[in-house]
Computed example of a mutant assay.
Amino acid sequence: MHICFLTNEFPKEGFPHGGIGSFVKTLAIALVRKNVKVSVIGINYTSNNETEVIEGVNIYRLKRSTVKGFSWYFNSKAINKKIEEINYKDRIDIVEASELGLAFIQKITSIKYIIRLHGGHHFFSESENRGINKWKGFQEKKSFKKSDGFIAVSKFVKEHTEKYLSYNNKPIVYISNLIDTNFFKPVVGNEIENRIVFAGTVCEKKGVRQLIQAFPLVKKEFPNATLEIYGRDWFFPDGSSYMQMLKEKELPQLKERAKDVHFHGSVSFVNIPLVYSEAEVCVFPSHMETQGLVAPEAMAMEKAVVFTKFGPGPEAVEEYKTGLLCNPYNPEDIANKIVWFLSHKNEARLIRKKAREFVVSKYNLENIVSYNIDFYLFLIN
């Protein structure tokens, strides 16, 4: 069996990537270990073609088009050409993409096409309280019509997406994102007392602004607390930095407490466990998630996790048993949940252990890989 993933986010040293990139890398390597051939095709971060093999995964990064207004056309053309080349040499059975990924893909009759619901344009438009962009909305609908099957990473994303888009009576299954619990595992001796850690893209929908607003309330109870923010910056349509906005508008309001808020920028995937290992509490107050990788990753390391109570939050965290859930729009509630963990060391210790047990059970790499292979074979046959 030969699986081909379409994504521009497969992790590359020195360049930022999102959760989809981390997920594809973890799944791709796990599939190779099951004797499945895997290729990954995406547009490069730089203006040249690159090919490399990472742990058996063949990665093709294609030269990015710079033709203004038509880059989508030339990028899609390059991806289609590469799919044809690879398929000619070594027949592809499955092409998998995220929601918009199949819009301009030319289907080959011998290949089955899958969309994995990571959270598309329609899905996030409602949560971000914005309208549907006609161009992106068109692409997503076009992409869905081409898919032969769908994989939803949470029950919530499946139900929420079908409010806006049709699955066209094609097969759809629910398979969680997988967590490598051998990579994300407890580390003894690294934890720093009252250290609060956020990891993810530094943007509005991840709740970073509200987390910063919650920090002074935490400091009142725990004066030596620090807030460590890890992740790539997000930019407004005019090109201005979201991170810079936080530094200029939010940090000054913290006054002397601002010195205990630290922005660390992007962190490589291999260093994420180190970041989590130093935290006493990991906080991810997202306004909306499809599933989210960061919360279960931190839980796998036996960390006290505060996650969003919205969307799939309750699917990942059981209140006061495997973690805590917060209202991500309410800084006071975020602060209260952080303070609870810092104030209840013994209870927190039990929750942390239960959290890892839950992740090992639900997001177990071996099981999740098997579920994916079963669905691939179902579509092929």
Rank of each mutant, 00 (worst) to 15 (best):
M1E: 09
N8T: 12
N8R: 12
P16F: 05
G18Y: 11
G19L: 01
K25F: 10
A30T: 09
T46W: 05
N49I: 06
I54K: 07
I59L: 05
Y60T: 06
R64L: 12
S65D: 02
T66P: 08
W72L: 04
S76A: 15
K77C: 06
K82M: 10
Q106G: 09
S110T: 11
R116G: 00
F123N: 08
E128K: 15
N129H: 02
I132Q: 04
S143I: 11
K146C: 01
K155Y: 12
E159R: 13
E162L: 03
L178K: 01
T181M: 00
V188H: 12
G189V: 02
E191G: 00
R195H: 09
G207R: 09
Q210G: 08
T226V: 13
F235G: 10
F236D: 12
G239K: 00
K259V: 06
P273R: 00
M288S: 14
E289L: 14
A300T: 08
M301Y: 10
K309I: 07
G311K: 13
P314C: 01
E315I: 01
V317R: 12
E318A: 12
A335T: 05
E347R: 03
R349L: 10
K354Q: 14
N364C: 05
V369F: 04
Y376A: 04
F378I: 00
